[in-house]
Nucleic acid binder design. Structure first.
Lengths: 113, 113
DNA sequence: AAGATATTTCCATGAACATCGAAATAGCAG
DNA sequence: CTGCTATTTCGATGTTCATGGAAATATCTT
């Protein structure tokens, strides 16, 4: 993970329409949904949905498996975990707040993470 | 937390320049940094930095405390935690994957979270 | 090959964004 | 009040984005 990838993934999620699509897939779980099923959930023109879905796929947040003429879309959980890790790691790296945190609340650790 | 706030926060972080600013503040820890110190780290025109910092503040990701003529900026850790929570909750809500996960790896639980 | 369905690509349009210099504001020091 | 420093607002410019209709592509079925 690096800042360029992280920024692009966050940008992909940082649009209400795409975030809705993504969360629909997260809720769907490992079984995934077809593009058409996602369209029923979010109610967009097919071309608009395709455009947004492509952004999510390009950034590695969604995987598509073809099954005949239909494409089954899945949230890529490892990508999400890596992104979250990137946001929270190096917390307080330029400060010795880990010791501070230990002193105050041993369980919680640093402010994030 | 709702999808509108989450999308706006993700959009705020979904720009390489702003993500760099934010991570600088996360690394700085609870002590924070002045706008000028952040500028030294990221090397932007003051007006550009101000523009981006405002976005982060407006979305609740950064807090500014005034100290005389200088503004001290802090990463808002609770906002980050809430955002991450929003991304991962409801994982598999439309599927009974929790049972699947229990069967396979009791510790890990659902794919995310 | 022909027909049917699922999905994507192309195209155009209006809106929002990123950048920076110049000017303006906020607050302290004297 | 004057000068000084830190930061923001304004204005302008080029870039990217979101949207959906129309046309194209992909795959299966017969």
């Amino acid at each position: 993970m690096n800042i360029e990838i992280a920024a692009r993934q966050l940008e992909a999620l940082g649009n209400e329409t795409r975030l809705g699509i993504y969360r629909t897939l997260v809720r769907a779980g490992t079984g995934g949904l077809t593009v058409g099923q996602v369209q029923e959930h979010v109610g967009l023109a097919a071309s608009t949905l395709s455009h947004h879905m492509k952004r999510l796929v390009d950034q590695g947040l969604v995987r598509q498996d073809r099954s005949g003429t239909t494409l089954i879309c899945h949230a890529e959980y490892p990508a999400m975990s890596a992104l979250i890790g990137y946001l929270t790691d190096e917390c307080c790296a330029d400060q010795d707040c880990i010791d501070d945190a230990r002193t105050e609340e041993a369980e919680a650790g640093a402010p994030i993470g």
